[in-house]
Amino acid sequence: MNRLWDISPVLGPATPPFPGDQAYEQRWTARIGPGCPVNLSALTLSPHLGAHADAPLHYADGAPAIGEVALEPYLGPCRVIHAIGCGPLIRPEHIGHALEKLPLRVLVRTCERAPTTWSDDFSAYAPETLELLAARGVQLVGIDSQSVDPATSKTLDSHHVLLRHDLRVLENLVLDDVPAGDYELIALPLKLAHACASPVRAILRELA
């Protein structure tokens, strides 16, 4: 069997939300005992916790919710590009070494270890880098930080590049142990009717 890399962080009470976002909460609605054969739980959480796929609705009123987007971008050949220590923004020069024969999906690793606590000191995409990838036919981009835009951004320039080119995006990936190179990406979002994002169980599979 081809090797798998699980690139999703654990979701639980310790998962750090974006400031102001809904944290993870779980409660039991039933427990195994006399008259009850099962355990049942209820979850409350932002769909932007952990590894997740943003919907266009997240950054544009009237745009598609996550349950409406096509699944093809989330499944197929993918390239992991290392830009570790690139600074606040991933610029074209940080990924230029890995653009030959680019597949339709690109994930960029920016840090040695994915954060386990909230910090606004993370790398995001420069808008011109997303423009470059879109011009090369990329359909999905991903990143191992909390957002494709800086935490303090109010204009969300990179998100709006995604919107303009109809690119899909994955955020909060864990690429700590993934060598640079080509893989198969499997990261399907849930079919949530009205949601602005969906958690994903993102994995990479070694190519045959």
Rank of each mutant, 00 (worst) to 15 (best):
Met1Pro: 06
Asn2Pro: 15
Trp5Asp: 01
Ile7Asp: 04
Ser8Ala: 12
Leu11Val: 15
Pro13Thr: 12
Ala14Met: 04
Thr15Ser: 15
Pro16Gly: 04
Pro17Tyr: 03
Phe18Cys: 01
Tyr24Gln: 03
Tyr24Gly: 04
Glu25Val: 07
Trp28Gln: 10
Arg31Ile: 12
Arg31Leu: 15
Gly33Trp: 00
Pro37Thr: 07
Val38Asp: 02
Asn39Lys: 04
Leu45Gln: 14
Ser46Cys: 13
Pro47Gly: 06
Leu49Glu: 02
His52Ala: 03
His58Leu: 13
His58Gln: 08
Ala60Asn: 03
Ala60Phe: 02
Asp61Glu: 14
Asp61Ala: 06
Gly62Lys: 09
Pro64Asp: 07
Ile66Val: 15
Glu68Pro: 01
Leu71Trp: 01
Glu72Ser: 14
Leu75His: 11
Gly76Lys: 10
Pro77Gly: 03
Arg79Ala: 03
Ile81Gly: 08
His82Gln: 08
Ala83Gly: 04
Gly85Asp: 04
Cys86Leu: 02
Leu89Lys: 12
Pro92Leu: 05
Glu93Thr: 13
Ile95Lys: 05
Gly96Tyr: 01
Ala98Ile: 14
Glu100Asp: 15
Leu102Thr: 05
Val108Asn: 03
Arg109Glu: 00
Thr110Trp: 01
Thr110Met: 05
Glu112Phe: 02
Ala114Tyr: 05
Thr116Leu: 07
Thr116His: 08
Trp118Arg: 09
Ser119His: 14
Asp120Met: 06
Ser123Phe: 00
Ser123Asp: 00
Thr129Gln: 02
Leu133Ile: 08
Ala134Pro: 10
Ala135Gly: 09
Gly137His: 06
Ile143Lys: 03
Ile143Asp: 02
Asp144Trp: 13
Ser145Asn: 11
Gln146His: 14
Val148Lys: 08
Asp149Val: 08
Pro150Gln: 09
Thr152Val: 11
Ser153Trp: 06
Lys154Ser: 09
Asp157Cys: 11
Ser158Arg: 14
His159Trp: 11
Val161Leu: 07
Leu162Arg: 05
Arg164Val: 02
Leu167Tyr: 06
Arg168Gly: 06
Val169Ile: 11
Asn172Thr: 13
Asp176Leu: 10
Asp176Phe: 13
Asp177Thr: 15
Val178Asn: 10
Val178Phe: 10
Pro179His: 03
Pro179Lys: 01
Pro179Asn: 03
Ala180His: 08
Ala180Phe: 01
Tyr183Leu: 07
Leu185Ile: 12
Ala187Trp: 01
Ala187Gly: 03
Lys191Met: 03
Leu192Gly: 07
His194Pro: 00
Ala195Gln: 12
Cys196Asn: 10
Arg205Leu: 06
Glu206Ala: 15
Ala208Gln: 09
Ala208Ser: 12
